[in-house]
Amino acid sequence: METQDNQNEQMPNLPERDELTTEQQIRRRTIKAFALFGAASLVPFGVWKWIQQQPKVNGLPKTFRTVLGGNEAIASLFLSHNHLAPTFPPEDAAKKVRVNGSDGMKGDFDPATWSLKVEQTASGEANRRFTLLLEDIKALPKVEQVIEFKCVEGWSQIQHWGGARFADFVAKYGVGTRSGHPAQSAGDWYQYVGLETPNGGYYVGLDIESALHPQTLLAYEMNGQPLTGPHGAPLRLLIPVKYGVKNLKRIGRIFFTDQRPRDFWHERGYDYFVGL
């Protein structure tokens, strides 16, 4: 090739690479390596910038939401009703149970006039809307469990709760399925359960699998006593397979849906699933 010939003419004494002196080789390899190293070190900065300038989805960069969605899909694969939260003897339970958060519990509230609204909007038989009283929940088989309650903040506490299984409540009242009958197939279940406080100030969404977990309770007792106000009297959710944020206190309304219910902390930058 012509150009190459010309170059060789201009530099007739250019030695072959393996004829470079040791010093020259050291120099060349060092410069080349550090140039590459410098260029490559820009990549993390690029990634950082790219993440920072992304549009936020519920407080988090879009890519993060995508990956967290993937994490949820993976977690759902090994989510099993056979995987139970370890239980403890009642004497291990904390006498002074930690209170954390009072969102949705502000303002006047009279437990005497409280009732639980249950809803699922659908066509046909499955369209249900009714209210229950605490006696109705107490009429379901009572379960007591001592589990380690885990807060998203990182602390945990062994606590003693009593109430009815969410799964028993669903079966008894024929809710949660599209057919309006006890589920014949896994696909008959609505995908989500939403719960809200009576004033709508706090709200959570749960995947149906976690809601139907045998340790998920509609709890009305703590340490063998009726729930106190700060712990969510008269009825609260106790779902050990989720962080505390999903354990909604003072349930006002329960609804079944295929759309992800809004979720208080998800709107504030947390993962939706938060499954343990």
């Binding site: 407080g59 988090l60 960069p61 890519t63 993060f64 990956v67 967290l68 994490n71 998203v152 903040e153 902390w265 504030r268 930058g269 947390y270 993962d271």
Partner: peptide
Amino acid sequence: LAEGMAWHFV
């Protein structure tokens, strides 16, 4: 916390 968890789990 929310930001930390997101970065950590990604």
